[in-house]
């Protein structure tokens, strides 16, 4: 479970050696868009030696590989042999790229006796949006990440602060994820100097059902974590519900004047679980 994921360019030694200190719930080591085409080998080797030699690695490691139809895909996937990677972030996810990556991963896993690699799918094409319900069903997929930059480019539309242009895409991703009990992660907010814009964007995404957001600079993490964490008030409410439930010992009761039944108890349990994971209790 995440609230925040931070992108770190794979070829940047200064960021890499400090990847473990930031308050994000996971780090995305980027071999794709943040790396110049001539430096792909440099980035890949740097990330690889970093994985092998560093004692304190971040808690969740995600590797953004290059697209399945690129020259780099096979070498990128070999980093799985380090056994340090928790998720592969698949760019330009659609049913075709899913099919290809699944084949490649299965063969790699079998040959090297690796456990099943989990995927986060980057939904950043109209095709990906159209096929997102199918993508979300795939057993490897644990989360969907909306990529708004590529998507709005493809649609030839401007990104705005209000974000109406993303309403459909966000909702599609949210529902596909929810229907398959996986995580919906929101696109990054690209203006790192605009604090108010970031706050609005996070709240808006959250209100539509996004459960987490990516960051492109560590300074965005505090806001993201704050907005995507359960509030103190909510945690307090959930604790009250659970305590009352344990005391009365039956499935339907009143709490703070409101009816509590099974779905409400489940919601409270989920919330407490989340608060535990994020160290908020």
């Amino acid at each position: 479970m995440f609230r925040s994921l931070l992108f770190i360019p794979g070829n940047n030694p200064s960021m890499l050696q400090n990847a473990d200190i930031f308050m994000s719930d996971g780090i995305i080591f980027d071999l794709e868009d943040a790396v110049n085409i001539n430096e792909k080998d440099n980035a890949r080797n740097l990330v690889e030696t970093y994985f092998f030699t560093t004692k304190d690695l971040p808690k969740n490691i995600i590797l953004r590989i290059n697209p399945v139809n690129s020259l780099f895909i096979e070498d990128d996937l070999k980093l799985l042999l380090s056994r340090k990677i928790d998720y592969i972030l698949l760019p330009k996810a659609n049913m075709l790229s899913m099919y290809v990556i699944d084949k490649m991963l299965s063969s790699l896993e079998e040959k090297n006796n690796l456990k099943v690699t989990k995927l986060i799918c980057l939904i950043e094409e109209a095709k990906g949006i159209a096929e997102v319900d199918e993508i979300a069903k795939h057993p490897r997929v644990e989360a969907l990440l909306l990529g708004a930059e590529d998507l709005t480019n493809e649609l030839e539309i401007e990104r705005t602060t209000v974000g109406n242009e993303l309403l459909y895409a966000r909702s599609k991703v949210v529902y596909a994820a929810a229907a398959n009990q996986i995580l919906a992660i929101d696109t990054p907010f690209t203006d790192i100097t605009d604090q108010e814009g970031l706050e609005y964007d996070c709240s808006n995404a959250k209100s539509l059902g996004m459960k987490a957001k990516t960051a492109i600079h560590p300074s965005q993490l505090e806001t993201i974590n704050q907005i995507f964490s359960p509030t103190k008030k909510m945690i307090h409410w959930a604790q009250g519900v659970i305590q009352t439930y344990e005391k009365v010992g039956k499935g339907v009761f009143q709490y703070q004047g409101k009816m509590v039944d099974k779905p409400v108890i489940e919601k409270a349990k989920k919330l407490i679980e989340k608060a535990k994971i994020f160290d908020l209790l």
Partner: peptide, 11 residues
């Protein structure tokens, strides 16, 4: 500072 390490320490 814009340096992420400096900001983290300050925070």
């Amino acid at each position: 500072t814009k340096d992420p390490i400096g900001l983290k320490i300050a925070k």
